[in-house]
Design a protein around this nucleic acid. Sequence first.
DNA 1: CTGAAAGCGCTAACAC
DNA 2: GTGTTAGCGCTTTCAG
Lengths: 338, 338
Amino acid sequence: MATLSDVARLAGVTTATVSNVLRNPGKVKPSTVEKVEAAIASTGYRPNLMARALAEGKSSMVAMVLPDITNPFYPEFVAVAERVARDRNYFLMVCNTPDRPDIGLAYLKQITGTLAGGVLVLDTGILPGDIEQISNRRAPIVLASNEAIHYDEQVPHVVLDLHRAGEIAGQHLVELGHREVGAIVGCGLAGRQIVRLGGFESALQAAGLSLAPEHVRDTPDTVEGGRAAAESLLAANANITAIFATNDLMAYGAAQVLAERGIAVPQAMSLIGITDIHLARDMRPALTTVALHTETMATLAINLLLDLIEDPGHQPRSVKVPEPALVVRASTGVVAAI
Amino acid sequence: MATLSDVARLAGVTTATVSNVLRNPGKVKPSTVEKVEAAIASTGYRPNLMARALAEGKSSMVAMVLPDITNPFYPEFVAVAERVARDRNYFLMVCNTPDRPDIGLAYLKQITGTLAGGVLVLDTGILPGDIEQISNRRAPIVLASNEAIHYDEQVPHVVLDLHRAGEIAGQHLVELGHREVGAIVGCGLAGRQIVRLGGFESALQAAGLSLAPEHVRDTPDTVEGGRAAAESLLAANANITAIFATNDLMAYGAAQVLAERGIAVPQAMSLIGITDIHLARDMRPALTTVALHTETMATLAINLLLDLIEDPGHQPRSVKVPEPALVVRASTGVVAAI
DNA sequence: CTGAAAGCGCTAACAC
DNA sequence: GTGTTAGCGCTTTCAG
């Protein structure tokens, strides 16, 4: 592949000049610009981004590490993050860390500041302690959506009120008159989605209700997990009138079980999730859920990361996602008259 | 961040020695290995992968460009490609090229050989002509799943018999006794999924049937697209007994329309897709489909790319995915007696 | 306005 | 075994 000096030689100038026409046009006389551009065209020259990054001391690439790209939440996040990053002239590389936090950590150690100028870490079960050790001024790490972890203000992160999300779901069911409800709690790499459940329970308690332990199921954060949990819930509790899942994917699995058993949604059973992935809108009956504002979150997160890259002293070091919002669709209804 | 020479200074050796303990252990005396390792540990040194790539003349990163990460086929592909790449000590960066082939091409031009040692291109509507111009010996490009394009043997690619996939779907419906069927044809970046449709039609023809133009709908390759097409099909053709969609995502959309209208699947209407994404297995009724062997395809594709990177002369330059296979689930059945 | 020269962090001969 | 040296391809002062 043609290099800068190939181009320079062909144009009869030095590499410094070629570099200038590429990066500081205007500093070079139009006539030589022409010559250089001709040389570039004829050689098919493309700058070596690694060499540039080395010389400049900064990379045009940012990375994102996430636990499971087949969980639709992440692709939706990635799609917008990529667009925002591209608008700001960065490449986005996404790293999937199937199941194991140690892989995520290994990735992080290898690429932070060496391949990527910054990294956005989602839900990978990596602890702030490890993060701080790896991060450094010019290669920041931003954490997002990692609910089980308590951040201090040092580590840059995106604040998302997952407790409130659970609470909103709970309030909605309470308002519809539900008294006996089941809960499906996801357990992924990020740990048990306990904060969401906590919010949900607090809404019930505020209404003088409570969530019995036998109405709760822990399960993997997948469609299959949701299905298994719903089956177990149904088998053990004949009297529940609503099911809350800590995310939409599991709610989707639960919906299938209900459909298979001929349990009408929402007439005989209400169903509510959290997140508002595309699938929630697409499924039938469409899923009532609590929107986490994925697009906004992704935009804020990636912008924070890029701000931090471009200005290590950037303040504030954390950013807040708007409060979760109830999206009422077809899967919830008033509890049937007894 | 600590550099090689920081470590060397601290250990009282030169950078060459440090480099050796990192890459050619055994060439260095155990006692100095210890000193160096102590220095590495105390500085928290991590090699700069860009500098290494520059010096070695090759990158440990490969890229994958794809048109729509929110289409679940791609995440499923990515997940396995990433794992295989990691096993071979490469990082995988994925680039999403939302809708526009020009973005895909721009990505490709920028990263091929400069950030990524090789690129896997899926369905992005980029033409082999452009590819050849960009590719070069040390940074190969592998094309996969780009059905509308005719490859010559020069450009490395993955061969997938999409015509056969359509044919298998058609044969299945024919065998079940369907005579009047509708077809939903996806139109994404890769162009109209015409090859699949062609296979489907040839199966009908072999049975003495034909697919009337008014039974065919072109639509975007999404859930929403599938839904719109199904509605249109149903509105215009009261007598069809089966619907074929050129991929599962659209079949999923069609299934929702059928459910909403109370059209029983498969009793009143059979439904078949192509690909076998997870959703096909997860939806209810579970979708009969023609498996494209995504995992195998991804494995073959990424391995071909890495082989080509490690040996530019590697033969063969293309690789064949096993024939598509019918997966019978719950969405197809014998045509109802009249 | 353009050239010369140093250096980003690392690897890889090749000496010693 | 370990050090010396020369680059990888680019950017960036600083002279001219």
